[in-house]
Design a protein around this nucleic acid. Structure first.
Lengths: 139, 139
DNA sequence: ATTGTATTGTTTGAACTTCAAAATATATGA
DNA sequence: TCATATATTTTGAAGTTCAAACAATACAAT
């Protein structure tokens, strides 16, 4: 087994673990999975248009329209039209939406703490560096 | 921003990047998303029962029943009953299923290679070690 | 052996998610 | 002004999911 094969295996396990964890968190909240993902992205970005949000979510804009409709219905976010380009809607979290985001974000922080609790300081900063590189170069 | 907050941010970006990548790979194949995940897990495990598969996938056994039904319909896997416990079905990949797995696995290996191409050898083995620890302790 | 309880897996119905393609509205360049 | 490009929405069909109810089998304790 080459190191890349081993790494592939661990990456998959990591991804699946993360995914299961995320699903169980979302299921225990009032959000659906796609709503939660959207809130997660919007919470980090202040203002996004539909296309940008769709790209970040990895889905089509059609799908994103449906998701944002639902967020609006739940008063978690709203569309804000702009003068510069009247085709564009900016999607913004409402105050309620921001609270929901913070709550969800706290869970993530807690998960991160759980992960780093088994690592020493050097490992943690090395891990962070590696992730930064990979994110910048690969995705 | 604490290191855990920074790490949370990078982990999320990593997860989303991985997720988008996986979705685009799956969409270009003849598999649906849930079928692909199941094949991915089954390819690594030889024999699994429904409960084990469901746990690995992070979904209920009901959902898994539907997924495996579909895999059987496509001749990618089959149920194998066992004498020891007649409630249990083992799910096994067919030869076609194994080929599909290998093909998908090759994509993963390619992604891993892309990631490691921006890292030096020490970083790679450190990254692998850290992932192993996290997978063992957190998920 | 019989009975009660636990476990494994399936079925069902309803809600959610997704895409592709067509449609709408607006922008931009020739 | 016209053609083309871009941003978003709408639509319809296929897939995905859960929870809850159900069926079959196992197991433990009398």
């Amino acid at each position: 087994m080459t190191i890349n094969e081993e790494l592939t295996h661990e990456l998959l396990a990591f991804f699946n673990g993360f995914s299961s964890w995320e699903n169980s968190i979302v299921r225990s909240s009032e959000l659906t999975v796609s709503e939660a993902h959207a809130v997660e992205v919007l919470g980090e970005h202040e203002k996004m248009n539909m296309k940008g949000l769709a790209q970040k979510l990895g889905v089509t804009t059609g799908t994103t329209t449906v998701t944002v409709d639902r967020l609006e219905k739940k008063n978690l976010a709203y569309r804000e039209s702009t003068k510069e380009d009247r085709r564009v809607n900016y999607i913004v979290l409402s105050d309620i939406g921001k609270n929901v985001f913070e709550e969800h974000h706290a869970y993530h922080l807690h998960l991160t703490e759980q992960m780093t609790s088994v690592l020493d300081d050097d490992e943690i900063s090395q891990f962070l560096n590696t992730l930064k590189k990979i994110n910048a170069e690969t995705f």
